[in-house]
Amino acid sequence: MLIKMKNATREDKLEVRKRLPGEELEIIPFGQHEIIIAKLDRKRDEYSRDLQEQLSSAPAVEEVITISEPYQLTSRKLKPEGSVVDVDGVKVGDETPAVMAGPCSVENREQLLQTAEAVKKAGAEILRGGAFKPRTSPYSFQGLGEKGLELLQLARKKTGLKIVTELMDVEHRDLVAEYTDIIQIGSRNMKNYSLLKSIGKIDKPVMLKRGMASPVKDWLLAAEYVMSQGNHRVMLCERGIKTFGEDTRYTMDLSSIPLVKEKSHLPVIADPSHGTGRWELVIPMARAAVACGADGLLVEVHPEPKKALSDGPQSLKPEKFARMMKEIRQLNELDKMDDILREAASF
């Protein structure tokens, strides 16, 4: 059960506690509100109308919400209108899909700046690039580390693009947070609960990728770990899951996009690059993701994919990325027109 309070004093919170004697309560900041999570004993009738009325009448209580799912703060029942994550002026979850694009790995100054200029010109608002790279083989390129972060900062200064990069462990949290605008948690770390709780304690937008073998419920509970620590600026990213398919790197689970948007108020980003592993499939899957309701795209772009130190086969060349952006804009305009016509037909 969630108890939504605004401008609550210490006495107001004590009053709620009095009305739930013996129950474990947790108070979490949530925007302009505070949320009290009551971890009620399932044996009692926690959904009774009498209990809700008693709590609703307490001072400073705006709303009492009962949620049967194990995830509470990520549930759409808490925020039916949906969340918009503001990344220093770039709004993710708004009417227009936000596009994050750039190389899988930051390799050198020339490669990064060339790519940043290209994706900026095509209309991207956020530059992606890995400074610390989780790789299956210990002998593969692991990233430039802090030097890569410095190059990302340089690219931001020259282009005005916001930055998203991956955080792999708690040790580098403050370093990565200093340089980036969005902290990305990769698929392999979706269930790294210590890391999730750690980034929940800082005020920095987080993009949480779905684990490659994780059901939607576990994905939302991973986001719950971040939000339970006070950071509610969370985005989810569908990046493909492991199936028996052999022709693509992963299977892009497009059905998860509308499903998650039904279950959760958090914005959903689609990553068609990892979702397929093949550059020729990226554009059609990007179109499909936007048509499914994705709030943004995460796309890998490289000036010379064949020379990329990581994920070259799934990277678009700049000219193909520009084509994708044009098609996405056209699709979004059609979607807006459809909404206008639907609204007009309702009168």
Rank of each mutant, 00 (worst) to 15 (best):
T96M: 11
V206Y: 04
M212I: 14
R76Q: 06
S256Y: 10
M207H: 01
S255C: 05
D45T: 08
Y47L: 02
L73M: 07
Q330L: 14
L236Q: 02
L78A: 04
T9N: 07
V16G: 03
F347C: 11
E81Y: 01
T251Q: 07
C104Q: 01
Y179R: 05
L208D: 12
L144Q: 11
L144M: 12
R10C: 00
M324V: 01
M212H: 09
R156K: 15
D174E: 14
R17V: 03
K4P: 09
E53R: 13
L266H: 09
D94S: 14
A122D: 02
S57M: 10
S198Q: 14
M168W: 00
T96G: 01
W279M: 10
Y71H: 12
V119A: 04
I3C: 04
P103D: 15
N189A: 08
L151G: 02
G22M: 09
A322D: 09
G200V: 00
Q111K: 03
K13W: 11
K162S: 05
E300I: 14
K209T: 04
R287D: 05
K197G: 13
L220W: 13
L196G: 10
P21Q: 05
V99H: 04
K307S: 13
T180V: 10
I328D: 05
T251C: 07
M337Y: 15
V64M: 02
K306D: 13
K157G: 13
K317V: 12
A60D: 05
P134E: 15
S83P: 01
L195G: 13
S228T: 06
C237T: 08
A286T: 06
Q153N: 12
S68P: 02
Q229M: 14
H172W: 06
A286K: 03
I241M: 10
A155V: 12
E146R: 15
E319L: 10
A124H: 03
L149Q: 11
L297A: 06
I183T: 02
L2S: 06
M285W: 15
L152K: 02
R10E: 15
I182S: 03
T248V: 01
E224M: 08
L25S: 00
A270D: 01
D169K: 12
E246Y: 02
H232E: 05
K217P: 00
K307E: 15
L175W: 02
K91D: 08
A98S: 15
K77V: 03
I257A: 04
